[in-house]
């Protein structure tokens, strides 16, 4: 007897129906409205990474006889008191949030750049909300991607903000766009910033993501804005976060130094 499998196999009924064939096209199909051409040109940074950095990073991060290193986790009450039953769990020792486990480094998890998140908070937009539009356009110009608007989340009368006010813009860029952004930063923008020391070694969220900021004057050095400088009398500072697959900040910094970013200061974590 053949066992019924219709409970175990998930069926996408949308694809079975003959209606709306144009909505069932795959993302890579050129007839799909969401189609985005990929691999249209050489990716210099990706080639550099695969040819040079990847094998070096594998060797640098290798440690012999690695074990899974457990991160700091929340602590349960031991149950010695009946009041422990509904008590909320204790935070990790010495911290407020849990940290991730560190897995053994192998050829499968060599650190690489995942995406770049760019955030632009416009303080002046509290009084002049139209400045958000300029910040949005500025991010669109320098990232070549779709930018999202940022709204305030809470009411704080002392700061003059109400919930839902437009207050900035943010963008997340992947792949070729992100790589172009990195090379633009390293070859055209950062070398021309006066007194630029590098990214501080104190930056990082302990799980391999490094952040640094650019002032409004630094942003003017992006070629997209510089070539049209008279239109960009007012620019806005940005925060740039490199999200990497590195498990610690120290490894993420080694990766970013390979992509051409200088670092300064004492390194603790």
């Amino acid at each position: 007897m053949v066992q019924p499998i219709h409970h175990t196999v998930k069926i996408n009924k949308r694809l079975l129906s003959p209606n709306y064939p144009e909505l069932k096209l795959a993302k890579h199909d050129i007839r799909n409205t969401a189609f985005k051409p990929a691999h249209t040109s050489q990716d210099r940074l990706q080639d550099h990474y695969t040819a040079t950095l990847e094998s070096d990073l594998l060797l640098i991060n290798y440690t012999h006889n690695q074990q899974r290193q457990e991160g700091l986790k929340t602590r349960e009450w031991d149950g010695s008191s009946p009041y422990h039953i509904n008590r909320p769990v204790r935070p990790p020792r010495g911290r407020l949030v849990q940290t991730k486990d560190i897995k053994p480094r192998t050829w499968k998890n060599v650190p690489q750049l995942e995406l770049i998140a760019i955030n632009c908070f416009v303080k002046e937009a509290k009084a002049q909300s139209h400045l958000v539009i300029a910040a949005h356009l500025q991010l669109q110009q320098i990232t070549n991607s779709k930018v999202q608007r940022v709204f305030t989340k809470s009411n704080v009368p002392q700061w003059g903000i109400r919930k839902g006010m437009p207050i900035g813009a943010k963008a997340e860029i992947f792949g070729a766009d992100a790589h172009t952004f990195v090379t633009t930063l390293n070859e055209l923008v950062l070398p021309r910033i006066r007194n630029f020391q590098g990214i501080t070694n104190k930056s990082g969220d302990r799980s391999g993501n490094i952040t640094f900021g650019l002032t409004p004057e630094d942003v003017k050095l992006f070629p997209e804005l510089e070539n049209n400088a008279e239109q960009w009398a007012k620019t806005f500072g940005i925060h740039i976060t490199f999200r990497t697959t590195a498990q610690t900040d120290a490894e993420a910094r080694i990766l970013l130094s390979g992509l051409g970013f200088p670092f300064y200061g004492e390194e603790k974590n």
Partner: peptide, 17 residues
């Protein structure tokens, strides 16, 4: 087998064209 924390690639290393 020591941890190579703080190791950096040379700044002179350019991404090839």
């Amino acid at each position: 087998n020591t941890n190579q924390k703080g190791k950096r690639f040379d700044l002179e290393m350019r991404i090839p064209t």
